[in-house]
Amino acid sequence: MVETLIAFAALLTGIAFLFALLRFIKGPSTFDRVIAFDVLTVVSITFIVLSALIEERGIYLDVALVYALLSFLGVIAIARYLEGRF
Protein backbone atom coordinates (compact mmCIF):
# COMPACT_ATOMS: atom_id res chain seq x y z
CA MET A 1 0.00 0.00 0.00
CA VAL A 2 2.72 2.45 0.92
CA GLU A 3 4.66 1.47 -2.21
CA THR A 4 1.59 2.31 -4.29
CA LEU A 5 1.26 5.71 -2.61
CA ILE A 6 4.95 6.45 -3.23
CA ALA A 7 4.58 5.49 -6.90
CA PHE A 8 1.47 7.67 -7.22
CA ALA A 9 3.31 10.62 -5.65
CA ALA A 10 6.20 10.07 -8.08
CA LEU A 11 3.73 10.05 -10.98
CA LEU A 12 2.14 13.36 -9.91
CA THR A 13 5.60 14.88 -9.42
CA GLY A 14 6.57 13.72 -12.90
CA ILE A 15 3.55 15.47 -14.42
CA ALA A 16 4.50 18.65 -12.54
CA PHE A 17 8.04 18.32 -13.91
CA LEU A 18 6.60 18.01 -17.42
CA PHE A 19 4.53 21.21 -17.07
CA ALA A 20 7.54 23.15 -15.77
CA LEU A 21 9.65 21.76 -18.62
CA LEU A 22 7.04 22.95 -21.16
CA ARG A 23 7.22 26.45 -19.68
CA PHE A 24 11.02 26.25 -19.74
CA ILE A 25 10.97 25.44 -23.45
CA LYS A 26 8.25 27.91 -24.41
CA GLY A 27 9.56 30.95 -22.53
CA PRO A 28 8.69 33.54 -23.83
CA SER A 29 11.03 35.79 -21.80
CA THR A 30 14.25 34.87 -20.02
CA PHE A 31 12.57 35.40 -16.64
CA ASP A 32 9.96 32.76 -17.48
CA ARG A 33 12.77 30.33 -18.17
CA VAL A 34 14.52 31.20 -14.90
CA ILE A 35 11.37 30.70 -12.81
CA ALA A 36 10.70 27.44 -14.64
CA PHE A 37 14.29 26.42 -13.84
CA ASP A 38 13.68 27.25 -10.18
CA VAL A 39 10.57 25.06 -10.09
CA LEU A 40 12.41 22.29 -11.96
CA THR A 41 15.17 22.21 -9.35
CA VAL A 42 12.72 22.07 -6.44
CA VAL A 43 10.80 19.26 -8.15
CA SER A 44 14.12 17.48 -8.71
CA ILE A 45 14.84 17.69 -4.97
CA THR A 46 11.57 15.89 -4.27
CA PHE A 47 12.52 13.32 -6.90
CA ILE A 48 15.80 12.69 -5.08
CA VAL A 49 13.95 12.32 -1.76
CA LEU A 50 11.45 9.91 -3.35
CA SER A 51 14.26 7.85 -4.85
CA ALA A 52 15.89 7.75 -1.40
CA LEU A 53 12.58 6.32 -0.13
CA ILE A 54 12.35 3.74 -2.91
CA GLU A 55 15.99 2.66 -2.67
CA GLU A 56 15.96 2.88 1.17
CA ARG A 57 19.23 4.81 1.18
CA GLY A 58 19.55 7.80 3.50
CA ILE A 59 22.75 9.00 1.84
CA TYR A 60 20.68 10.41 -1.07
CA LEU A 61 19.38 13.09 1.28
CA ASP A 62 22.87 14.63 1.41
CA VAL A 63 22.76 14.83 -2.37
CA ALA A 64 19.39 16.58 -2.12
CA LEU A 65 20.76 19.13 0.38
CA VAL A 66 23.79 20.02 -1.77
CA TYR A 67 21.54 20.16 -4.84
CA ALA A 68 19.21 22.61 -3.08
CA LEU A 69 22.16 24.80 -2.08
CA LEU A 70 23.67 24.94 -5.57
CA SER A 71 20.38 25.49 -7.39
CA PHE A 72 19.51 28.36 -5.04
CA LEU A 73 22.89 29.98 -5.72
CA GLY A 74 22.39 29.50 -9.46
CA VAL A 75 18.96 31.14 -9.50
CA ILE A 76 20.19 34.07 -7.39
CA ALA A 77 23.21 34.59 -9.64
CA ILE A 78 21.12 34.54 -12.83
CA ALA A 79 18.54 36.90 -11.33
CA ARG A 80 21.19 39.38 -10.22
CA TYR A 81 22.80 39.22 -13.66
CA LEU A 82 19.48 39.87 -15.42
CA GLU A 83 18.77 42.72 -13.02
CA GLY A 84 21.87 44.43 -14.35
CA ARG A 85 23.89 44.97 -11.17
CA PHE A 86 26.07 42.76 -9.06
Binding site: L12, A16, F19, A20, T46, L50, L53
Partner: peptide, 24 residues
Protein backbone atom coordinates in the same frame (compact mmCIF):
# COMPACT_ATOMS: atom_id res chain seq x y z
CA UNK B 1 2.62 5.94 10.75
CA UNK B 2 3.25 4.46 7.31
CA UNK B 3 -0.21 5.32 6.04
CA UNK B 4 0.07 8.92 7.29
CA UNK B 5 3.45 9.23 5.59
CA UNK B 6 2.14 7.89 2.29
CA UNK B 7 -0.87 10.21 2.33
CA UNK B 8 1.39 13.20 3.09
CA UNK B 9 3.56 12.22 0.14
CA UNK B 10 0.57 12.16 -2.19
CA UNK B 11 -0.69 15.50 -0.84
CA UNK B 12 2.71 17.12 -1.41
CA UNK B 13 2.91 15.70 -4.92
CA UNK B 14 -0.57 17.08 -5.63
CA UNK B 15 0.62 20.54 -4.58
CA UNK B 16 3.63 20.19 -6.87
CA UNK B 17 1.30 19.24 -9.71
CA UNK B 18 -0.83 22.33 -9.05
CA UNK B 19 2.33 24.44 -9.08
CA UNK B 20 3.40 23.05 -12.44
CA UNK B 21 -0.08 23.60 -13.82
CA UNK B 22 -0.06 27.19 -12.58
CA UNK B 23 3.34 27.74 -14.13
CA UNK B 24 1.94 26.60 -17.44
Amino acid sequence: LDMTGGLLLVAGAAFLLLGGLGLW
